[in-house]
Computed example of a mutant assay.
Amino acid sequence: MKTLILFAHTFWKDSKVNKALLESVKSLDDITIHNISTAYSDGNIDIPAEIELLSQADKIIFQFPLFWFSTPSLLKEWQDRILTAILYGENKDLLKGKKFQIITTLGGAESSYDGHHGVTLEELLKPIYHALKYCGCEYVEHYAIFQANVDNLDLNAYHNAIKLG
Rank of each mutant, 00 (worst) to 15 (best):
W78A: 07
Q79R: 01
Q79S: 13
R81M: 10
I82N: 13
I82E: 11
L83T: 04
L83Q: 03
T84K: 10
T84N: 07
A85V: 09
A85C: 15
L87F: 11
L87S: 15
Y88E: 15
Y88F: 13
G89N: 12
G89Q: 01
G89D: 11
E90A: 14
E90G: 09
E90C: 03
K92P: 00
K92W: 04
D93T: 06
D93I: 09
L94H: 07
L95A: 13
L95V: 14
K96H: 12
G97T: 11
G97I: 10
G97R: 07
G97M: 02
G97F: 10
K98Q: 04
K98E: 09
F100V: 11
I102A: 01
T104D: 04
T104F: 02
T104E: 09
T104W: 02
T105A: 07
L106V: 05
L106C: 12
G107E: 07
G108L: 04
G108Q: 02
G108Y: 09
A109Y: 00
A109C: 00
A109V: 03
A109E: 14
A109D: 07
E110F: 03
S112G: 05
S112Y: 06
Y113V: 06
D114N: 15
G115S: 10
G115D: 03
G115V: 00
H116G: 00
G118R: 02
V119F: 14
V119A: 07
V119C: 15
T120V: 14
E122V: 07
E122W: 04
E123P: 08
E123N: 02
L124V: 13
L125E: 10
K126Y: 02
K126C: 03
P127A: 11
P127D: 08
I128G: 04
Y129D: 01
Y129Q: 03
Y129W: 05
Y129F: 14
H130E: 14
H130P: 01
H130M: 15
L132Y: 15
K133S: 15
K133P: 00
K133E: 10
K133L: 06
K133D: 06
